[in-house]
Nucleic acid binder design. Structure first.
Length: 296
DNA sequence: TAGTCGTGGGA
DNA sequence: TTCCCAAGACT
């Protein structure tokens, strides 16, 4: 079987993307700024895109530029984050906005190394912004891309993420031309999100099946957990989530008793609350009332 | 490298 | 019903 060459990949993938992409995603509409792209990427870190879409629209309407978000009340930011999960991302996104407003003229930087210096922006998100907003040529490797690339090579499991190796593998598949490489990046990610998914390989409708080892060998996805199972019930994370949900569901501040009611074990409650205070997700007025930052 | 950090939907 | 999984970052 022929191996996958960059030019073949581009010719197979780009037409597929044009026909099958989720063009309804709000950040794919014409006129979306680099800031809008950045916000969509941060919101989509570990949160399904379908749940991100409505939150993104409300967010961008409220804070259309980094400076707008930078000057917002943090409590409003956390409420707008809603139930997207991992709310520390919201704090980092506001810190990111402050940095862009103060050090980059309120414009999302174009250079990868400058993007990487921003709070909450790691290897994936920096590349995603550079490629999707500015159409540069960089490997963009998320969980979808890792899975597709692994399967192309005939592996049933992408294994543990090793950034350097994963980036090199994707880099080798990118065509030389910047804009074409950008198109390939978004398309291969979309393929992993829509066709070559974790639970179903979708080889029968895959545009890459002719040169894919996984497809040609008739392999099937692994059925067990591909990562270490992530427990939630009874964890500190659950208690934090309950406390934050209690705050979201009330107007201003709440008395200590409301927090005590969310979890029976005092030690875990205290630990979770102390963390939230330390991280700046919750504030106390010193008299037993708690709220989002700025709501006291 | 491995553990931590939320939440909700689909299989 | 239970459990996997989702456009990762940070320590």
């Amino acid at each position: 079987m022929d191996s996958v060459a960059p030019d073949w990949l581009a010719k197979a993938l780009i037409p597929w993307f044009e026909q099958n992409q989720r063009s309804e995603l709000p950040w794919r509409q014409p006129g979306t700024t680099a800031w809008g792209v950045l916000v969509s990427e941060v919101m989509s870190q570990q949160t399904p895109v379908a749940r991100v879409a409505p939150a993104w629209e409300a967010w961008m309407a409220a804070w259309p530029t980094p400076a707008d978000l930078a000057s917002a009340a943090t409590g409003d930011v956390l409420r707008a984050w809603g139930s997207l999960g991992y709310p520390r991302r919201a704090l980092r996104l506001q810190a990111c906005a402050e940095r862009i407003a103060e050090h980059h003229g309120n414009v999302v930087p174009r250079q990868l190394d400058q993007l990487l210096e921003l709070p909450g922006i790691g290897t994936y998100t920096a590349a995603a912004v550079a490629v999707f907003a500015y159409r540069q040529r960089h490997p963009v490797v998320d969980t979808n891309v890792r899975r597709v690339v692994a399967r192309l090579a005939g592996e049933r499991d992408a294994g543990t993420a090793t950034t350097k190796r994963d980036l090199a593998a994707m880099e080798a598949l990118l065509p030389a031309d910047e804009e074409t490489a950008s198109d390939v990046s978004i398309a291969i990610m979309e393929l992993g999100a829509l066709v070559c998914t974790a639970r179903s390989a979708g080889c029968e409708v895959c545009p890459l099946r002719e040169r894919c080892e996984f497809a040609s060998r008739g392999l099937k996805p692994l059925d067990g957990p591909s990562r270490k199972p992530q427990r939630y019930a009874g964890t500190n994370r659950q208690v934090r989530g309950l406390i934050l949900n209690e705050l979201r569901s009330s107007q201003g501040t709440i008395p200590r008793a409301r927090i005590d009611a969310v979890w029976s074990q005092e030690a875990m409650r205290n630990e979770a609350l102390a963390q939230l205070l330390e991280e700046g997700l919750v504030e106390s007025d010193g008299a037993g009332n708690f709220g989002f930052p700025g709501s006291l």
